[in-house]
Every structure is written in C-alpha cells, then in structure tokens.
Amino acid sequence: MIRQAQSNDKESIVTMIGEGMLWRTEEIVDIVEKATVFIWEENDQLIGCGTYDLNSSGEDGTAEIYVYTRPDHRKRGIGSRLFDQLWLDLQQHEEKPRAVMATYRVDHGQGADFFAKRGFASIWGHHLMKYTGEIGPAPTLDVRKFSESDMDMYIQSQSDAYYEVRKGIDLQPYRLADYPEKTMNAWKSWLLGEMREDIYLFEHEGVFVGSLIITGHGEVYDVFVDPVHQGKGYGKELVRFFVNQTLEKGLQPYLVTGTHNESAIALYERTGFQTFQTTTTAKRDFA
C-alpha cells in the first residue's frame, strides 16, 4: 500500500534510495529531509518510494521528483502508482509548479521508457566518474585560494568557458553571467561563504588560466580553463592537482560531468577516471 513517509521511515528510505543511485548518503538524507515522500509498503517492508521537492531543482516554478522500486518487485505497477500519487499531490498543492523534472539511471533499468511514456523529454545527462589510479606528478602551475577581489574575473572566465557546452544543450542562459540579479547574488554569496576555502585558482606566469572546487568528501566540480588558455594542457594539470590533493587525504577522487561534454570526458578518462553511473534528467510541463 502507499502511505506518506514518517520520520521513523527515514533510515530505511535512505538505504533503499542508495541501492538504486550512487549518491553519497549525506546527499540522500538531504533529499529525504526536504522532500515530500510517499512509500510503498508490504508486510512492514519498504518496496518503493517516490519523492517531490518544489525547491531543489534550482529553477523557480519547477518541482523535482524521484521514483524508485526495488528490482525484485518491478513490473508490478508499483512505480506507476507512486508516480500517480506524486502527481496528484502536486496538483493539490497550493504552490503548483509550472514544470517537473526527474532524474533516473540509464545504465540499467527502465527509467527512460517509464518517464518518456509520461511525457518527459531528456534535457541532459551526467556520468559519475571515479579515479582508479595513484598519486601522480605535482602540477607545474601556480595555485592559490580564491578571494573576493577575484569575483568578477572568476565569473567572467567561467561564463566564457561553459558557453559552448551550455549552448550545445540549450541550457539558458548560455553565459552564467547573464543569470538574473537574484540568482547571481545567491551564487556570489555561496562562493564567498560556503565554498570560499574550497576554490582554487591556477596561474601561469602570473596570469589566471583556470579554476576548480574541491569538496571535503573527495568531489571536484566547476572545473574550467579560460578559453584563451585552452589547448595548452592546463586542464590535465588542474585534474592532477585535484587527484593528488584528494588521495593525500585518504579519499577516492570522483566527479560528475555532463554526458554531452565529450572533451571533458576524454580528459578525465586520460587521467585515470572511469564511469560508474550514468543518469539522465528529463522535464515536462505540469498540467
């Protein structure tokens, strides 16, 4: 039967979602704590779950949903019933979304067919990649931490670096610097607050060439080389720095990159990363 999750279900829900998605436990806990969650229960056992969150997607007016059924209970209509319950609840919500996004694995399972039948169209995909090698040579670039005085340069350079990739998948605005003022202010606050100590800037002979963010749990993101300096091998140096820093802390380096970003994937594979999970995010209008 379907019922809304209670606080004492949280541990079981986190474990179940972790069986299907290679997300960090802390990430799953955050999803479960913020979302509205429905579960399918049989004989006091959790068989499946569905979640929705009206605020997690990063797009105003867009809800994010997730549906999972344990493999040995699939093809019984459980996922369909959970999806219908999520949709009904959203229709009755006082803050109805304009659109809904769903993320699912495409390296196994039937997620693509399931959501396509419900009107969702893929908008982008991601590879979860993990490093499988050892510590390598130290990079030759100069490295320093991010400061507030770097803000304008950092945003401009990252906007230029990601322009072609974002345009290729029609992710608007194509330039990050063109986000609305509210979004830009939130981004700047995040950079100067939560992320400030994790942002590294790379220079060659005093000239900025690229940047990345290294988290405390072994992930790297927002990796970019300024377009003016691309094609000089600096990307490999940035990745090498991340790998060495992370391995020295006893952590396994990993990252998430877009399936459309072929040049980045090739770079990561050349530096010892392998793909462990591929997901797609799909979207449809809410009606």
Rank of each mutant, 00 (worst) to 15 (best):
I2S: 06
Q4V: 06
A5T: 06
S7I: 07
K10L: 12
E11T: 05
I13Q: 02
V14L: 02
E19S: 05
L22D: 10
L22P: 06
R24C: 00
T25C: 08
V29K: 07
V29Q: 13
I31S: 12
F38C: 08
I39N: 09
Q45M: 05
L46F: 00
L46I: 13
I47C: 08
G48S: 09
G48I: 08
L54A: 01
G61L: 09
T62P: 04
A63N: 03
A63P: 00
E64R: 12
R70Q: 07
K75P: 00
G77N: 06
G79F: 02
F83D: 01
F83N: 01
W87D: 15
L90E: 02
E94H: 09
K96W: 01
V100R: 04
T103L: 05
V106P: 02
H108L: 03
H108E: 11
G109I: 03
F114D: 09
R118K: 13
G125T: 10
H126P: 06
H127S: 10
M129F: 09
K130S: 08
E134Q: 15
G136H: 13
P137Q: 12
D142T: 12
S147P: 00
Q156M: 13
Q156F: 07
Q156L: 11
Y162K: 10
E164W: 13
G168K: 05
D170Q: 14
P173D: 08
R175E: 04
R175D: 02
L176G: 04
N185M: 03
E197W: 00
D198W: 03
I199Q: 05
E205Q: 15
G206Y: 04
F208V: 04
F208T: 10
S211M: 08
I214N: 13
T215R: 09
H217T: 12
H217M: 02
E219N: 11
D222S: 15
D226C: 10
Y234W: 00
K236L: 02
V243S: 07
E248G: 06
K249P: 01
L251R: 10
P253F: 05
Y254I: 04
T257N: 08
E262T: 14
E262W: 04
L267H: 06
F276N: 03
Q277M: 02
T278N: 05
D285K: 15
